[in-house]
Design a protein around this nucleic acid. Sequence first.
DNA 1: GTAATCTGATATGTAATATATATCAACGCA
DNA 2: TGCGTTGATATATATTACATATCAGATTAC
Lengths: 297, 297
Amino acid sequence: MEVRHLRYFIAVAEELHFGRAAQRVNICQPPLSQQIKDLEQELGVALFCRNHKKVSLTDAGAAFLEDARDILRRVELAAERARSVGRGALGRITMGLVLPALDTFLLDAIREFRASNPGIEIQLLELGTLAQLKALAAGDIQVGVMRLFQQDTKGLVAERILEEPYVLALPSKHRLASLKEVPIGALDNESFILFPRRTHPALYDKIIACCSAAGCTPTIEQEATTKVTAIALVAAGIGIALVPASTRKQHRFGVVYRPILGDLPVVELSLVWKEGTESAALYKLIDTVIERSILPI
Amino acid sequence: MEVRHLRYFIAVAEELHFGRAAQRVNICQPPLSQQIKDLEQELGVALFCRNHKKVSLTDAGAAFLEDARDILRRVELAAERARSVGRGALGRITMGLVLPALDTFLLDAIREFRASNPGIEIQLLELGTLAQLKALAAGDIQVGVMRLFQQDTKGLVAERILEEPYVLALPSKHRLASLKEVPIGALDNESFILFPRRTHPALYDKIIACCSAAGCTPTIEQEATTKVTAIALVAAGIGIALVPASTRKQHRFGVVYRPILGDLPVVELSLVWKEGTESAALYKLIDTVIERSILPI
DNA sequence: GTAATCTGATATGTAATATATATCAACGCA
DNA sequence: TGCGTTGATATATATTACATATCAGATTAC
């Protein structure tokens, strides 16, 4: 059974006249009769009653007519849906992002994107960088926002969308709080609060190396997985923390922020997706995010 | 777009390999590639990403896959449904019946039919004979149970399923109640309760004619559209009534029934349907009813 | 580095089949 | 009875889906 049979059948069922039906589907009457006969034979049921004077539907024909119409509608709908998805008017994207990304322009960009692309459903998933890389490979997310510092990006496309320097978060009573800017060298023997090494091994090592190069040996007093935790620990006087500059938004009594003088890696956020991905909706999203990105040029 | 395209597409989408997919649908790889290309061209969207090493679905392809599977399922379902209707395993019948039919074997027959044909939905509609004839012509009912006495049955098929004589319903204090059987001639000058002439003109006239032939001129005191009304009127002493024998089931204080001696038309119930109807479910129902009919042979 | 192998695409011939033309058979109507 | 209408049948034709052979790009193996 082919779609053609359904089209022909519907024409005959609606006209109840082979000649007119044939005209309607732009073929001659004999092949139409033939095709209907083929259809009936395949189904093993008579769809029409032919009385030489009047054609009428059998019960089976009436039932089949409803189904045939429905199927035809669905075929057209499926085609239209595929086209919509193809041009990015329809879609579903799951996006991973690291927690700090929430403090950036990103949510605004996504809100704006949702408004102008109501057909594209975006699901956000808070995930660490490594988890996002796995999720990308597994296809659980189509795009991620992560700290890509020295990660392996084979088979991936990455676009840096934000970078900011580290600043120092200090208890306001700390001896270094009186300085406008703090040189790295001054941090020798300070108690540090830093993210756990496993979340960003390369970045972690690089920071330690930079400190060493500046002649200071930091003591890692405490690990903090989120910026909020880190600031809380600083406020409690547990130590000092290296945090991205955007963290300054999080005002907290007893904590002051100071720029750092010296060579430290820059904190970055990158938009990452799979190479060779074929998704118009995804590229629309990527374009929007990159356009809104606030990188120094 | 034809069903074939959907079958091919699903095969490729599931195998993600043109060669294997071709094998699965029993054609060679080149025509399969060709057909998929045709499909993509018709849709105006790429459904697959061909990377010389790996075939993968595009977003549009993934969306289309869901629809294609659904459509194919529906096509198979439609075929199965048509076959079921064709062999009478599935169907919907609206049946008209006159009120007196409810006092007969008919409801039992229908109950039994419903039990053994759960796929066939039967709707009952209480209608007078003339209304049923109209409804048959209009297609509002497919079959009717009616009093067909001398009605025009052109284009219809009728099968008598029940016949019974008239009996006389009398007030128990009536002078004729003492008789075992009442000759028609004894009814002269009695007050009659009869159905309205418009419901069965021919039958009505025939009854009057029979009375006249027996030398009695009945006075039609009162019309009654239902047997219950007629019996109630008899009980109230308004007159005597001619009712079908089966009415005796309806015992009522103050009313007695007596057979009539003489020539009166027989009350009959007929099963009527349209000539040339092509409905397995309907014929199943007709067969059941006729089989259960209780006619003297 | 080159051959071997695998992938899907292309080119072209062939077979299947959907369609067109011509005609028929059955029925209704004048 | 002849004429017009209906759908079915017979046969020819054109389309097209498919098969065969081959190619081009990519990966793997030696």
